[in-house]
């Protein structure tokens, strides 16, 4: 129990670190001076100090929604696979609940975009609605496939099971699921080629456009939420697709876990550096690939021997 709580705390606390890490790697690869890894914390700290300015046009929603953007994600953290085996964890929560919680967060985020009557918030919400509508089926299908491979619908249970029974018979469907899930990580977290988190051109952005009218504490909440969201996805990815090392003692296991996430961040940074952002209406093509791979994963699981 205590280890699980520590794990959750680590996830919350280290969340901004990994986003900064990606950014730093990217800058380093582009021969820029990389930003310090603690930049994310600095940003948050600055935001907390600042005064909140609420748009004149905004309603109660702006005051409430940021909490509801973050709270579902924090709740979702409770259901993450544990870093070590034999530890107490919440194992019964399945893909549908998890995606539901993520969607709840996105729902309020989109409302924020519409609340301040600015055209850019609308753009952001509209695009986010479009992308997340297409992400949701892919997400559910992937996790469904994984839970079939792991023979358990619970996310945490499945991760544990994958560690003990590595699916050597279903490697094809396992790989397909990995590819699909990876694309979904990019899409859900607003990474290139779906969205550019560092863009300064309003017309091309998705996530940033929605929060354009937020400031101070509220912005901090939303930023923290996006960091935690990345953490959730990264945790899911590493515990599903590299289910190694959780047999180790807690501290070693935690270290392995963090290393895996850092490695994942490195890959994402590499991809971001090497690809251009897709036009909005090309995005479905990428998501379509994810969905098809998810389907393939399911079907090959069935076909190649259940």
């Amino acid at each position: 129990m205590i280890y699980t709580l520590i794990h959750i705390a680590v996830m919350v606390i280290l969340a901004p670190l990994f986003l900064s890490l990606i950014k730093a790697i990217k800058m380093w690869l582009l021969f820029k001076k990389p930003l310090p890894l603690l930049q994310g914390y600095n940003d948050l700290a600055k935001l907390l100090r600042k005064e909140v300015i609420i748009s004149q046009e905004a309603s109660q929603i702006t005051r409430i929604a940021p909490y509801l953007v973050l709270a579902p994600l924090l709740t979702a953290l409770l259901f993450m696979p544990p870093v070590t085996k034999g530890e107490w964890y919440i194992g019964f929560v399945d893909a549908f609940t998890l995606t539901g919680l993520l969607a709840l967060s996105t729902f309020f985020l989109m409302l924020i975009g519409l609340d301040s009557a600015s055209a850019f918030g609308g753009i952001g919400s509209s695009r986010e609605a479009f992308i997340s509508a297409l992400v949701e089926p892919g997400m559910i299908l992937v996790i469904f496939a994984l839970s079939l491979i792991a023979k358990n619908l619970g996310i945490a249970e499945a991760a544990i099971h994958l560690n003990t029974h590595f699916p050597t018979h279903h490697l094809a469907s396992y790989t397909f699921a990995a590819i699909a899930f990876f694309i979904l990580i990019l899409a859900e977290n607003g990474r290139i080629p779906i969205d550019n988190p560092e863009t300064h051109l309003e017309l091309t952005m998705v996530h940033e456009a929605m929060v354009l009218d937020l400031s101070g504490w509220y912005l901090a909440l939303v930023e923290a939420a996006s960091a935690i969201k990345y953490m959730i996805f990264a945790t899911l990815f590493v515990s599903f697709f590299s289910p190694f090392g959780i047999g180790a003692p807690f501290l070693i296991a935690l270290a392995i876990y963090l290393a895996k996430i850092a490695f994942l961040s490195l890959i994402i940074a590499l991809i971001e550096v090497n690809t251009a952002k897709l036009r909005l209406f090309k995005v479905p093509n990428l998501l379509g690939i994810a969905i098809i791979f998810a389907f393939l994963s399911l079907i090959s699981y069935y076909m190649l021997g259940a």
């Binding site: 300015i53 609420i54 748009s55 301040s116 009557a117 101070g216």
Partner: peptide, 23 residues
Amino acid sequence: LRIRKRIFHTWACGYRTTPRTQY
């Protein structure tokens, strides 16, 4: 944290927000 709040114009990319600029 004693968050202070103020209701004011927000930036909105430099445009004036009117009913017709909304999405």
